[in-house]
């Protein structure tokens, strides 16, 4: 159930914040002169997540957080900073990938360290899981980055669909706040889609994919380990970004740009759509007394 606070800080504020940041960075009304700044994407998407998460979680963001999920606030800030650095400095691809791997692994270790404390994981078990989460973050980063460089509108469309569906599934099935924060990222990407369509020169290349991959991998890993989000949803979400590589197949790359975008989005939405549909059905089944247990008797 969405309260007025949820609507304000989960939708209105991220929309306004993203519009302001992206307008300053991209100046979409300018047709000539300096190219739009690439830092806009990571700042807008990262702050959309962080601001929504911070406000809806309440004033509990102290180091070290009392609850594991609260680490997502700092993880969001950290990846936003990394995204801005990635946007400002042209680093070699190998270094960028290594940064994503190390940062995602470290962030996941902070988020999931209770598994060591509770003795659910031993050192080897933990290393395998953390390495796996970091590897997924790298694969997602590479997939979204190549989609963003392959076509200006493809990047924000793919990232928006990915973050939006992930947020929907998390909010419907397990935990509302992180779901809304991921949804706030999707709102930032909706703003980006509109401004990219207007500007034709703006882009979410470099930096934005790093924010989404790092925050997304940690958020979904957190939902799996903390809130028991079923594994089938994680797997469907995890494979979705891989479908974006279809745009690299020569037969598709030769198509007109708009057709290439349509093909990429349709293929991307197959696993995401299946996951979203399953989540809606599951949520309806779970709420045996109505669509929302908090309102079922209202």
């Amino acid at each position: 159930m969405l309260t007025p606070t949820d609507l304000l800080f989960g939708i209105v504020v991220p929309f306004a914040l993203s519009a302001l940041i992206l307008s300053i960075a991209w100046r979409p009304w300018r047709r000539t002169g300096a190219m739009p700044a690439l830092w806009g994407g990571p700042v807008a998407s990262g702050l959309a997540f962080v601001s929504t998460f911070a406000v809806l979680q309440g004033p509990r963001h102290v180091l070290a957080p009392a609850s594991a999920i609260l680490w997502l606030f700092y993880i969001g800030l950290g990846f936003t900073l990394l995204g801005v650095i990635d946007a400002l400095f042209r680093l070699p691809q190998v270094i960028r990938g290594t940064v994503v791997f190390v940062a995602a692994g470290a962030a996941a270790a902070l988020l999931l360290r209770f598994n060591f404390a509770n003795q659910t994981w031993d050192a080897l078990h933990g290393a395998v899981w953390l390495g796996g989460i970091a590897a997924v973050a790298v694969i997602w980063w590479a997939s979204f980055e190549q989609a963003a460089t392959g076509g200006a509108i493809t990047g924000p469309l793919a990232m928006g669909a990915f973050s939006g569906v992930s947020g929907l599934i998390v909010a419907l099935l397990v935990e509302q706040t992180t779901g809304q924060a991921l949804g706030a990222m999707a709102i930032a990407f909706i703003v980006a889609i509109a401004l990219v369509a207007w500007s034709r020169r703006a882009s979410v290349e470099r930096g934005t994919a790093m924010v989404l991959a790092g925050v997304g991998a940690c958020a979904l890993a957190g939902e799996y380990f903390i809130s028991s989000l079923p594994i089938q949803y994680i797997l469907l979400i995890a494979v979705a970004p891989l479908t974006l590589w279809i745009g690299r197949i020569p037969a598709i790359r030769r198509r007109r740009p708009w057709l290439r975008v349509v093909i990429q989005m349709v293929v991307l939405l197959i696993p995401l759509g299946i996951a979203a549909g399953m989540a809606v059905v599951q949520a309806k089944n779970d709420a045996t007394m109505g669509s929302d247990p908090y309102m079922s008797l209202a």
Partner: peptide, 11 residues
């Protein structure tokens, strides 16, 4: 209520 129980067990 299964949905509410899942939410209560979540973060």
């Amino acid at each position: 209520n299964a949905a509410r129980d899942k939410h209560l067990k979540s973060a």
